[in-house]
Design a protein around this nucleic acid. Structure first.
Lengths: 354, 354
DNA sequence: CCGGTTTCTGCAACCGGTTTCAGGGATGCT
DNA sequence: AGCATCCCTGAAACCGGTTGCAGAAACCGG
């Protein structure tokens, strides 16, 4: 039975193995066509070393002829990198995240990277799942776009893969964080309302422990203090960063007969909800109540009336975070400066009524 | 100088090659820990064959101990599949696409697949770039979510990789298409306006050669015909599926002193623009002009006033297309039925004024 | 007690690239 | 001419998994 003493006989004669699902134009085929070895072809493609013009042209011709494009998985395996960046956001259909994701995609594409998006749906557990999945897939870096994962967990992950996180400030090795100046933005908004003569200004907050939300609340309070107006807790309502939260806040204020002539909302979506609730209650914006948001989403330009907001260019934030993760991967210290927040005055704010 | 006649001496003793960027827990390490070979470990992980309970437990323990997760690139290379689906849309920050993408992501995730999103920005050239890039990356299938790539090119790609395309109907091998019933939707919208007594109904169209847009226009015309109203080309204006197009249409109509009491817009974003332009012109919605959209984007619920629209559940369309691509990959014939379009009456439409 | 199955396991080929190393040819210098 | 250098190029190891094949062990009946 042991007829083969020579066990290392090559099995190449064996029939084709699995199905070959991809229409594979391989490097070898290109090399053979050009009359060179695979190594040389690879070197020409990656411009690793100089080769004679003759061979270069031959290989380039073969590539063009076959329309060859190197297999990304194989290259990723060999190089230990995938040219893919994992991006964790909360929901793709949120206008806020959509804009940021667009910025990320745009910048990454310019550098030959592709984003792999995953959504955490505002749940820490889901975010962890995303993290693990992205790491398995061998992404070269991860952008955590305004997530709710704890700082400690994030730091732990940062030891396995470069991470950029937005919406909070955090220092750790292999991690870069960036946050817009929420407090300044809130101050701009409040100063605008105060300048218009408003004194009873309501604030619709976000989730309790959300860093951005807290900073904006802090800005609200400091602006009031600077204007010599006492802080009235009745004027502050919890929201959820969505339209529903804005609506609930308005109903609550009005049902409690709390007086106010202006509302500062933690983000634009909240402001949209507030506007709708005011409309339902028969109040006109801005004649009866001024409303101001935060983020300046693209759609805010087209609201009726167009919404006054604090612009933070979420798209630009996306671009910057993409830039940062690439720098981090390259082993450099990212030196990113976010554009300043600015007030965009439109038609949802006006002089105080009384 | 030729001291080695034996050229096939293994080079394993050579120092570590490239940097090893990933925190690599490899299959081999797990296998060694469990006291088995890599093959056995692989078989246990994939449940390819039965192995003794003893070994199974040992391997499982080792996996847990190291928190091992197989490298996706390597597995993809070996298997010829990547558990990744390419998704081409036009822009991530569009509420329309955002919703669809969310549906796709949701469904794919349940099946262990991950979506790789790329945006074509409404340009055929970009879509081609996306296609090529996705194919290079070895995605197992591609979902083309309402793109503008030509039918012929699409069919050609379908021979290389399974494709699902939405927004048009197309028959080809390895390709599945799905389209909502635009004509019926347009009919529903028009019947609603006609029932409210409107006779001069403007239509804001989309791009010229866009299948969805054309179908909706056809529905507009057929509904008019059914009601015995002559088609007036003056009432039809070109749009761009965005707010700007809706605004331009309103300005054009009013500057030309063309009479109308209602507007049917090719999609919700166009309707948003129309509402804003009407507001600027001092017209009230719905008292002076009724406005109806198409898509029923989530934000339409929160417009002031809330927008009447034709619901097509873009998210569900996303879910269905994800379902279809998975079926296609599995070699089955997808049998998908889209939910019917339906009219959602809100407050932007009312009885005709005169 | 022995040959024939059946079940399990390991070796090594393979996926498609990248990269090290060594060898050959051309060139430079004495 | 002789020898060290430098530049190119190809063979083969390697990335981290999967899997065909065959050998070993366990099981079975006669």
């Amino acid at each position: 039975m042991k007829k083969l003493k020579e066990k290392s006989v090559p099995l190449r004669t064996r029939g084709k193995r699995g199905p070959r699902p991809r229409n594979s134009v391989t490097l070898k085929m290109v090399a053979r066509e050009a009359g060179v070895s695979a190594s040389t072809a690879s070197r020409i493609i990656n411009r690793t070393v100089n080769v004679s013009d003759e061979l270069r042209l031959a290989v380039e011709a073969a590539i063009a002829k076959f329309n060859f494009r190197p297999n990304a998985a194989a290259r990723g395996l060999a190089l230990g990198k995938t040219l893919t960046i994992g991006v964790i956001s909360q929901a793709m259909d949120s206008p806020f995240y959509g804009e940021g994701l667009r910025g990320i995609e745009q910048r990454l594409q310019q550098r030959g990277y592709a984003p792999l998006f995953m959504s955490g749906n505002w749940q820490e557990k889901e975010e962890i799942r995303c993290m693990e999945e992205l790491i398995n897939r061998g992404v070269d870096g991860i952008i955590m776009f305004a997530g709710c994962l704890g700082d400690a967990a994030l730091k732990a992950y940062a030891r396995k893969v470069p991470i950029v996180v937005t919406g909070r400030l955090l220092r750790a090795k292999g991690l870069v964080s960036m946050q817009v100046d929420d407090r300044l933005g809130a101050n701009l908004a409040m100063r605008h309302l105060l300048d218009l003569g408003h004194r009873r200004i309501a604030f619709v907050a976000g989730f309790e422990n959300h860093p951005d939300a807290n900073e904006r609340l802090a800005g609200y309070r400091s602006a009031l203090a600077a204007a010599g107006i006492a802080f009235d807790p009745q004027l502050v309502n919890a929201g959820d960063f969505h339209e529903e939260g804005g609506m609930r806040a308005v109903y609550q204020l009005m049902d409690s007969n709390i007086n106010f002539t202006a509302m500062f909302c933690v983000n634009d979506q909240t402001a949209y909800g507030a506007c709708l609730a005011l409309f339902r209650k028969g109040m006109r914006v801005p004649d009866d109540v001024s409303v101001i948001g935060f983020d300046d989403l693209p759609s805010s330009t087209y609201r009726v009336p167009p919404l006054t907001s604090v612009r933070q260019s979420v798209q630009h934030l996306g671009v910057c975070s993409a830039e940062a993760i690439l720098e981090l991967i390259a082993g450099r210290k990212p030196q990113i400066t976010l554009p300043p927040v600015e007030l965009v005055v439109r038609e949802s704010t006006g002089r105080a009524a009384r």
